[in-house]
Design a protein around this nucleic acid. Structure first.
Lengths: 227, 227
DNA sequence: AAAAGGTATTATGAATTCATAATTCCAGCA
DNA sequence: TGCTGGAATTATGAATTCATAATACCTTTT
């Protein structure tokens, strides 16, 4: 791994550690060795520890007093809670977007929607997810709320490790596409309340189709605490 | 000011700086002198700078490369955006709370509600706000979603400097109390959708009754950037 | 007197050093 | 053999030191 370039070191380090977590190179629950990371990145402990503190406040890492840091161990409940929250934020983004979105932005989203439909009919799941994400990001951007965007991205990062299942059921997929059809209708009508409602409900079953790799069951956690 | 006690220093320091910001001792836009804060708290620069980085990631402080830190300057738009977000989160808390709240918790909230009504009728604004906050916190707690709670508290901290106006209009106050009446009805019926809707709308006009002390108008900001 | 340039000072960014808490490992003992 | 206690080691928490960028101040020149 290439050494880090020296500019705003703690921020660079934080980005790199985020990548390591996202990529699964740092295993949840496993202790993070400061010395080892220092050597990996070629930096001293000061910026590394600053980065860890930022990551802790982002909820990606947990700091144990006098016992170092570890990658945050996600529980099923935490993932569910996070999805609930993201649903609420998506809903808000829809409501806000309708208040000010331009005709051009709407046509752009409709274009993406058509692309997504193509991928759906061709059963191209990767491409489908990519365009799907673009649509939601477009709505988020159209909401024109920096604080919302920041929060949403933070939450998104926390559960990034939980990947979408490769074997999404047809029924679920059809339902998701159907939601998107309704979204487009509401968006074109600039019906914020309705778009918000659709988006809030849209995400709420997403948990059913994620693979919980690296996520521990809550009863496991209880055992780990008691045992 | 008493020296800080040595235990998880960076966290203590962060708490203290939050207090200073909330209390208005650290003025928005003003540069934060590391040396001065170090002397105030009786700590070295290392934990202080760690604290600043955490506060920056919380949005309370902004870090300028090679030029230190300053208290985040709130704009009217940022405050509005934050209130929109908090409204959405309140709404979610209501929905979730209805799914699992116990009878005991409901009666406790009803009790608070009655207290609040008393304060309203007696025109005791301070007490009214205190109980009002307790009600919303109770619902938030009943939602049983740690991530939500954490995020709400963070947002709350960002706009804490913006205080409620002493001269809230009767009309507005009556409307707020009316909202609360409807909330109680929905809560007793455990009607999550409805409670969520009320809570989302409840906050959305709050901006109208806050004093924007220390907050700069967005056109001022534009002037500051251009000038 | 005002502006430009350069030096001195100060503040920040990062590395190193020091202190202390946690862990490991081993000896002694039951 | 397994358990307890303590020394040695290691890792973390915090302070200090070093390097460098930004700022302030002063001189020089027009």
């Amino acid at each position: 791994m290439s050494k880090i370039q020296h500019r705003n070191l703690y921020r660079e380090v934080a980005d790199r550690i985020r990548e390591l977590i996202e990529h699964g190179d740092l295993v949840p629950g496993e202790r993070i060795s400061e010395k080892q990371l220092c050597e990996t990145f070629g930096v001293s402990r000061t910026p590394l520890r600053e980065a860890l503190k930022v990551l802790a406040s982002e909820g990606l890492v947990e700091l144990l007093p006098n016992r170092g840091a570890r990658v945050m161990q996600l529980t099923v409940k935490m993932v569910k809670d996070t999805y609930d929250l993201m649903g609420a934020l998506e809903g808000l983004s829809g409501e806000l977007a309708c208040q000010q979105i331009s005709d051009g932005q709407i046509t752009a989203i409709c274009k993406l929607h058509d692309q997504m439909l193509d991928h759906y009919h061709n059963r191209e799941m990767q491409a489908y997810f990519a365009v799907n994400r673009q649509i939601h990001e477009s709505i988020l951007a159209a909401a024109n709320n920096q604080v919302l965007e920041e929060m949403y991205n933070n939450l998104s990062y926390r559960v990034k490790r939980v990947r979408y299942s490769k074997k999404m059921t047809d029924a679920f997929w059809r339902q998701a596409v159907n939601d998107h059809e309704m979204m487009i209708v509401a968006l074109k009508a600039r019906d914020g309340k309705r778009l918000g409602q659709i988006l809030r409900d849209h995400l709420c079953h997403k948990l059913e189709v994620v693979t919980l790799a690296g996520v521990i069951e809550d009863d496991e956690l209880i055992n780990a605490v008691n045992g």
